[in-house]
Design a protein around this nucleic acid. Structure first.
Length: 590
RNA sequence: GGACCCGUAGCUCAGCUGGAUAGAGCGCUGCCCUCCGAAGGCAGAGGUCGAAGGUUCGAAUCCUUUCGGGUCCGCCA
């Protein structure tokens, strides 16, 4: 799709020209040559750093190279002006006719516009959400779900073969606690006389997960097993007789609920991997054997953390992984001092599983509270794959929910935390998804329930949707011409500055997809769409001041067709961008 | 004590992975709707990019130090 990727097209010309001017220039120097939009539009459409990059190896001053390059580039078909500038830039102004001629390609590509080839069909595993199956999803999970899903879509758009994965933490103490909590609800369901406090006192680690959402789970257990999991007096029997059953039952129910919540958000994973399953299949043992064979495991005693030593600190020998060999601060425990595996060990097994499935790259979306965990996981992946498979971790920061400008206090104990379901019911799925992408993922975010449904200029959700609705409104009024028909329209009539600004923005979409996917930053798509919508609204407003700039003009059928092509392309790019974000475009605003 | 993230206009945030005179929205100031595309539009003011060094043709961006905010910190997941 290079015919619509204007930066790639011009870059080809620049590299060709440099090759002709300096045949001996090394490839790695040529690879550093870039063609970018200049900050200041007064400098033209694009600028290249080629002369500055080549100055040293070519042993010539950059300005001199820039002058020669400019002279050469003026011969390129799309170049209208080429001028050396500043420290050695070459500024390029492109023929507007050439830019207009890209428009049919945009229309023909439709939803596929912007697809890139940098993924080159390589396989990437994107793991996200991975909430513990111990309760309903809340806003904290929501951001990770949206960012992960959009990132996966973005990578697919950039040519990666993407697998969306959910890792179920169903093996640790948390799900054990879930088992005990569910068992309490079961006892209640069969009519126990015990009090909650008596029961809690007998539970190792205390009774967690006291939320009401486990009540129906306990009732379902009672329906399935009757009184068989308790004494005739409806008091607890040995945990060994029921814990596995109850825990597995509860986890299955929680996962069902989580899948429903994710479906509400429009998130669908391709693969669910069970931590307990990995352990059962011996993946943990395999991973450990592998690291051991590489001499990366030893039994040792870690230093206490520097500064404040915990009160109960005592040195204990543990099985450790030599994470320091891969850039981590300290070696990390694989086994606790009692010999049982750590969460880290299981996660290593998880990553071995991924590597064995042949992925070329791994991506995780984690909450920021796992930030300290990144380095060791990268160390492990590096060790297991001999450095072949990169692991990128995208951290998402906390979301503060506001209502009318006031923070909504969240407390698990009081049961006032906001579930994903609440959020979607309050503002709608599309607003949730879009808004979650209006910040860099590693910046804290305020989610103002009133703001995100506000219909105004400063709400990008509305602003972008409104632009699409306006586009569709115009097209409907014109009888909804086929994209193929509009692709054949003569475009010479598109000359107004606002029309050209919009066109130029449309043509930067492929470059945006490349950059955003490389940086693993889906939020850039949201900002791009806001800019695109801004250009479109600006053009619309010009039609208000100057009737000759309106899209549909009875007296000018040719100009009308050209403008409809531009409007159709705008709508198409908005749809393509929203598709990456997982947001549904609206046909009209009511 | 250490690690990671953040610090950009009065406010909320972008800044295309080192480029030219740092941007947007809100807010503020001043103009613009009898009607024809105003759920608004146009223009303007507003910045030592937290601070100090360093790297180089060139730094908001990279490195070091430092200040402020957040998150986390042996075997919890």
């Amino acid at each position: 799709m290079t015919e619509t990727h204007i930066f790639a097209a011009v870059l080809d010309e620049v590299r060709g020209a440099m090759r002709a001017l300096f045949p001996e220039l090394p490839d790695d120097v040529l690879a550093r040559v870039l063609v970018e939009p200049p900050r200041d539009a007064a400098h033209g459409d694009m600028a290249t750093n080629a002369a500055m990059v080549a100055a040293k190896p070519a042993r010539q001053p950059p300005q001199k190279i820039a002058a020669a390059l400019a002279e050469k580039l003026i011969a390129a078909p799309m170049v209208a002006e080429a001028a050396p500038a500043g420290p050695g830039f070459v500024n390029l102004r492109l023929h507007e006719s050439w830019l207009r001629a890209r428009l049919p390609g945009v229309l023909t590509a439709g939803p596929r516009y912007g697809e890139a080839t940098i993924g080159a069909g390589r396989r990437v595993d994107v793991e996200y959400v991975s909430a513990n199956p111990t309760g309903p999803m809340h806003v904290g999970h929501c951001r990770g779900a949206v960012v992960g899903d959009a990132l996966a879509n973005l990578l697919a758009k950039a040519g990666w073969d993407v697998t969306k994965e959910y890792y179920i933490n169903d093996a640790g103490a948390q799900v054990q606690a879930l088992g005990y909590a569910t068992y309490w609800r079961y006892l209640q369901a069969i009519g126990t006389a015990m009090t909650e406090e008596d029961y809690a006192a007998a539970v190792p680690g205390g009774l967690q997960y006291r939320g009401e959402y486990l009540i129906p789970v306990g009732e379902a257990l009672a329906a399935a097993h009757g009184g068989a999991l308790a004494t005739p007096e409806k008091t607890p029997i040995e945990p060994a007789l029921w814990l596995d059953t109850v825990r597995d039952f509860a986890v299955a129910r929680m996962m069902e609920a989580i899948r429903e919540d994710l479906a509400l958000l429009g998130v669908q994973h391709d693969v669910f991997v069970s931590e307990a399953g990995l352990v059962r299949d011996g993946k943990l043992a395999q991973a450990e054997a592998r690291l051991d064979a590489a001499g990366l495991i030893y039994v040792g005693v870690l230093e206490p953390p520097k500064g404040k030593t915990p009160d109960d600190w005592e040195p204990r020998p543990q099985t450790l992984f030599r994470a320091t060999q891969f850039g981590d601060e300290v070696d990390r425990a694989l086994r606790k001092s009692d010999g049982s595996g750590t969460y880290f060990a299981n996660d290593i097994a998880n990553h071995l599983h991924k590597i064995e499935r042949g992925f070329d790259a791994l991506v995780h979306v984690w909450g920021a509270d796992h930030g300290g965990y990144v380095r060791r996981m990268q160390a492990a992946v590096s060790a297991l794959s001999n450095g072949r498979v990169p692991l990128d971790v995208v951290l998402t920061q906390i979301v503060h929910v506001l209502k009318g400008g006031e923070p909504v206090r969240m407390s698990k104990r009081a049961g006032t935390y906001i579930t994903l379901r609440d959020l979607i019911e309050e503002v709608g799925r599309d607003a949730v998804r879009f808004t979650m992408l209006t910040r860099k993922s590693d910046a804290q975010m305020e989610f103002d329930l009133d703001r995100v449904i506000e219909q105004s200029r400063d709400n990008p959700v509305f602003y972008v949707q409104y632009a699409h609705a306006r586009c569709r409104s115009v097209l409907r009024q014109a009888g909804d011409p086929e994209a193929a028909v509009l692709a054949g329209a003569p475009l010479d009539a598109l000359t107004d500055v606002a029309e050209m600004a919009l066109l130029r923005r449309i043509l930067t979409f492929p470059r945006l997809i490349e950059a955003a996917s490389e940086a693993r930053e889906p939020h850039r798509v949201a900002f791009y769409l806001a800019d695109l919508a801004g250009d479109f609204h600006a053009l619309w407003n010009r039609g208000r001041e100057d009737a000759t700039l309106r899209f549909i003009r009875e007296d000018e059928p040719e100009a009308t067709r050209a403008r409809l092509a531009l409007v159709a392309a705008t709508a198409s790019v908005i749809r393509a961008g929203l598709a990456v974000m997982g947001v549904t475009p609206v046909e009209e605003m009511r």
